[in-house]
Design a binder for these strands. Sequence first.
RNA 1: GGUUUCGUAGUUCAAUGGAUAGAACAAGUGUUUCCUAAACACUAGAUCUGGGUUCGAUUCCCAGCGAGACCA
Length: 597
Amino acid sequence: MNLESTIGSLVAQVIDSLYGLKLDASQIQLQKTKREFEGELTVVIFPFVKAARKSPEQTGQEIGEFLLKHNPIVSGFNVIKGFLNLSISQSYWLETLKEIHSTVDYGKTTAKEDAETMMIEYSSPNTNKPLHLGHIRNNLLGYSISEIQKANGWKVVKTNIVNDRGIHICKSMLAWKLFGNAETPESTGMKGDHLVGKYYVVFDKAYKAEIAELMGKGATEEEAKKTAPLILEAQKMLLAWENDDKEVRQLWEMMNAWVYAGFDVTYKQLGVDFDKIYYESETYLDGKEKVEEGLANGVLYRREDGSVWADLTADGLDEKLLLRSDGTSVYMTQDIGTAKLRYDDYNIKKMVYVVGNEQDYHFKVLSIVLDKLGFEWGKDLVHFSYGMVELPEGKMKSREGTVVDADDLMTEMIDTARETSQELGKLDNCTPEEIERIARMVGLGSLKYFMLKVDPRKSMTFNPKESIDFNGNTGPFIQYTHARIKSVLRKAKDQGIDFSTISDINLTISEKESYLVQLLTEFPSIIKLAGEEFSPALVANYIYDLVKEYNQFYHDFSILKEENLQLKQFRLVLSESVAAIIKTGMGLLGIEVPERM
RNA sequence: GGUUUCGUAGUUCAAUGGAUAGAACAAGUGUUUCCUAAACACUAGAUCUGGGUUCGAUUCCCAGCGAGACCA
């Protein structure tokens, strides 16, 4: 039983016996005591004053006296306004630290055999261009929330749906065919996804030129866009693809293969992976089938032009297109097909889609449509809706060339980390491989932490001109603290000091030290909350607080030079526990921590 | 136009309805014979506006202003 629930149920008993007010322990408002007051845990008294018919101060006093008398954990109290601040005994903190220190994977709940499965979809790229900054946020959130749900005892299946078919890839294919001179990743030395992306841009330029020309001849913009030869040709290609045209399919397979090879490199560098990948080309037909079924059941209806719609006006939404009049599918159709396959493949309890908030409406609709089509889990799907990454001048726009490329950004971060290490001379006696490994950890750590410390629901700003910091509330700051602790622990080990446990439970420790132990006790509930709220940011901010406190402790107290052997042992145990939590917590964010840096 | 999300220091981010709104960066200033100074300490600086609910509002409700997204 943790401290909060112990004190909570005790307070509930007190106010029942004193004032006849029956409350559940969970209804007692407990919070960490603010730093400027004495004590560690605070009971908010205001909610009881009506029942007590006394002033908040008197009420607090009464409750405090009772607690002090009846529970040895409480070693003192003070009342300020309506707040009852409790001091917790040092031996309680020492016992608690001992327990934390000896717990393997402290904070995590490992999945049991019969644990339920949560499928988490993230990344979901199109195959016509490389990944960019927005994808980075998506991938990091997806990976991190997967780790967090695992730590909450779920079986997690990470999945990716690749949008590998459609007009977009046909555009790249066509441009390559027309202007590509048979270029390949090998012949150009370019990453496959970048090469294909290049031709997507080539298409766009040529297409725009055609539009301008047509408009010069008197066509309206709309007409020009529809009748430009290139777009007609691309549409023809898409049709040929759907009809299994051999040549088109071969080209498609070749260029997609280039893209996948490129994506693999990016994913690997970013440190994310998937248990199962679905391809739209393999699922969209299932979607159509399911739609036809819905049509037969009367859940959907067909308009005169042949298009198929879902009427969602009863749910407060509009009508939604599911199949175009020419029989081609839309995103929604694909999602229906993919969902069906997934539930056939796995015994999924909960389905989570990590997709930007621009798709809020889409997922509201998808949830209802799946429900109407008879998928019982449709209603409970989770859209993990995150905010966009914006540049100082607004949204990224590919036509204005303001897209921040994922590969470039990662390379830049790693380079900066390497340079910084060199300037500081920290790794002078490391091998080149080690230097590289650490530069990668730190560079990516900095990027990942930057993206994950922000509340996922909010949109965030990224300024590419100001490189991401390595000081302050950053990944490297946390990594550095970990490395520093490890260094102390190595030295302690060399000196033969035993810090496997705390042998003296009646030590006198400082306020700073007991506060650090208190912070450690919060870790499990942070993981739980992060899972419930789908917020890696909670973990990130917690680790930062912990590390900041630890650094103050490290600065103000000596560990290895402490003369009291018992105290020295305690501090080593404390430090090792902090390091373990840093490692676990950062692991939940997909960030590695080095032994030295 | 309809729906929706969001407005907190110069900037980037925090704050289950609770005490004097926290950090970091940027600015200025200190701390190395001592376990890693990628650290620590100090100075200065903010809740868009107007109502309401509450013992108590950055947080909840309404209106306005401003920004973004989606749907036309």
